[in-house]
Write a protein that binds this DNA or RNA. Structure first.
Lengths: 237, 237
DNA sequence: TGCTCTTAAAGTCATTCTGACTGTAAGATA
DNA sequence: TATCTTACAGTCAGAATGACTTTAAGAGCA
């Protein structure tokens, strides 16, 4: 007799994709439900946690099985366990979902699996989703935007080397507003988390900008004491 | 038959207590384990989640059953689910703990249940605890200190009316350092979350300070979209 | 009564941070 | 060569911050 609520792990998968005008916008991956309840509606990818599987590993598996991609960044978001998450169900169907959120590079995302039942959606224009997934996404979006300011999150969307304009484009897409280029440069240079490589990006229609990279030696205390113990990014390969 | 990890809810219970010199220090409630593993060591109060019980309700129940108190503030901290949380155990014993943290008023805490197996500990001087509970407390402490700055958390330790000196004492106890009284006053008045009541606290050995209260109409976006769904109501925006 | 002790509360000052903005540099393109 | 575009450096005013000074309002005591 199983008297405990079921445990599932779901993952919010963020990336940046160019819109019809070519400017980057924040997008996320959803899957279509093919079973009741909420059959036909879109939902976060997820599933039960295996008995010998770490939480973050389960989230990475969601990501891989849904899009075929690896996370550039992965962090726990929240555990959702309200009694009314699945309306009309009785206690036996109760599921507690531990939700992670992941960033994938925009170049990789362009090559991601897409099908009738797996697709990218613009983060700022979501339809009604299954379960409490609209609330989950509201919160994920809020966390992403807040965290961007005091962390190295933008790296999750970019390649190893990038111009300050590209970095600013990430910030603008995530925050949903334009930033002053001069002030952005000053802010980034002041906090010291990026280093100039000396190389320049050639072939633009204007003065060639310098390429930067993140300074791995700078420790941004993203998660405080949890910083590596729960998200073993480096070990994971 | 049961192929899912077990689900438990634990609670970090913070309060402020006067030390031997009479100044307030941050303390937390722990219970002694009376079973293996880690028999005899101190640990966070917690237990399995009932099938029809909300996560936050389970955390409040931990608090009530341990100390007899009600939370002034309650927020989810993190879900801990590493495979090696309980060393030497096999997969069948695996437990995923969803940890909450709570604040209780220092006046109520003085009347809390204490026994041989339930006791308060200073937050800055902890011995080796059961399971991964040292890590959990490190993280809880980090979150508490970070959150203090941009929220109304200190209210959780205080009564309805308080002087700015009392409010500052809470900040100093939590942050573990002294703050300039003048600058603290300026900061608090600028952010506008407290209101002067017009009353004064009489009977001190010096000029009577004004009593303040929190302004409930000011919305501090603590949890973003989750701010109220955490406790009970489900409001869609 | 007057003196001292203590904290309340207001204010000063220099530094840093922030947002808005200007000016010049270095390419490509027409 | 002229023009377009973005890179990059710099200015300026107002806000925020940390260290500090001054005055106010009580209690306690000689």
């Amino acid at each position: 007799m199983n008297e405990a609520p079921a445990l599932a792990v779901s993952t919010v998968i963020f990336t940046l994709r160019p819109d019809s005008q070519g400017s980057m916008k924040l997008a996320l991956a959803l899957v279509r439900r093919i079973r009741k309840p909420f059959e036909g509606l879109w939902a976060l990818p997820g599933g039960p946690l295996a008995l010998n599987e770490d939480l973050a590993d389960a989230a990475a598996r969601n990501l891989r099985e849904t899009t075929g991609l690896q996370p550039r960044y992965l962090e726990q978001l929240y555990a959702f366990g309200s009694l009314d998450r699945s309306p009309g169900s009785n206690d036996k169907d109760r599921v507690v979902s531990i939700v992670y959120w992941a960033l994938v590079g925009s170049d990789e995302a362009a090559a991601a699996i897409e099908s009738e039942n797996v697709s990218w959606f613009w983060a700022d224009d979501l339809e009604k989703l299954a379960f409490d997934h609209n609330l989950i996404l509201d919160y994920a979006l809020w966390r992403l935007r807040n965290k961007l300011e005091y962390s190295r999150l933008a790296h999750g969307f970019l390649g190893e080397r990038f111009t300050l304009a590209q970095l600013r484009e990430v910030y603008e897409a995530v925050l949903g507003r334009e930033l002053d280029p001069g002030n952005f440069r000053r802010m980034v240079e002041a906090n010291g988390s990026v280093l100039a490589t000396g190389e320049r990006l050639e072939g633009t229609r204007h003065r060639p900008p310098q390429l930067y990279r993140y300074d791995a030696s700078i420790d941004l205390t993203d998660l405080g004491p949890l910083k590596s113990s729960n998200t073993k990014q480096e070990k994971k390969k």
